[in-house]
Amino acid sequence: MLQILGRRTVSALTYLGEISILFAQTLSLALRPPWRGKNLLSEMVNVGLLSLPVVIITGAFTGMVLALQSYYVLHKMTLETVIGGLVNLSLAKELGPVLTALMLAGRVGAAITAQVGTMKVTEQIDALQSLAVNPVKYLVVPRFLACLILLPILTIYTVFIGMLGGYIASVKMMGINATFYLSIALERVAPHDILNGLIKALFFGMIIGIIACHKGLTARGGAEGVGRATTGSVVTSCILILIANFFITIALEIVNL
């Protein structure tokens, strides 16, 4: 029992170490030429286009539900005028970045792990190395950067579409006065709230990119192994996103952003 516990601890620490090393390598290689603009661009198109429908649906329905639930509660206290502020603030600071990240861990993270993992188990990664090309530079850097750059952008989409959804649910469905709704909604959300959400998105993008690539690079055991790595990638990213969200929230509160 103790032995098993010991091994678990060691393997958790090893995992953390491996992730840190890959992260450090990725950053240092990303800053050094040659830059593979073409690879990065094709990854960005991949990540961006794959995700737009997901992001639109997530944003729209979250915004609407948020507005409806707030309405049911606040209506009883005749406070429905603050709904706009509530909806928009939650979207900008929490739900926008977190939901976007969770959806993308499933959509993009899984796709990256499956692709890199397949390359690993079919010896394509070894072949890259035998051709004197660094797989981290060639495969990980563009995928990591694509996640890092696109997560804030997609978060803006989610937040914006969510705000639109909240507006529609409140004004068109519940009959709240439009001018009233907008005045509160826009007044309550300051630029730093948006920035707050974008900083979170940046970290979530790094988590998705690194975890997905690492799971792919360490995949073993044929198609089954790639499947296992892909599931692992989504689960690990989601958990880390939720945990990181908590700590980033505290950190941002401390530096007063």
């Binding site: 079919t122 394509q124 070894d126 072949a127 035998s130 051709l131």
Partner: peptide, 16 residues
């Protein structure tokens, strides 16, 4: 050093 080598992999390992 690897540029002096060529390797043919068991499963071909072509980039698909």
């Amino acid at each position: 050093e690897r540029k002096r080598f060529g390797m043919l992999f068991q499963g071909a390992a072509l980039f698909d």
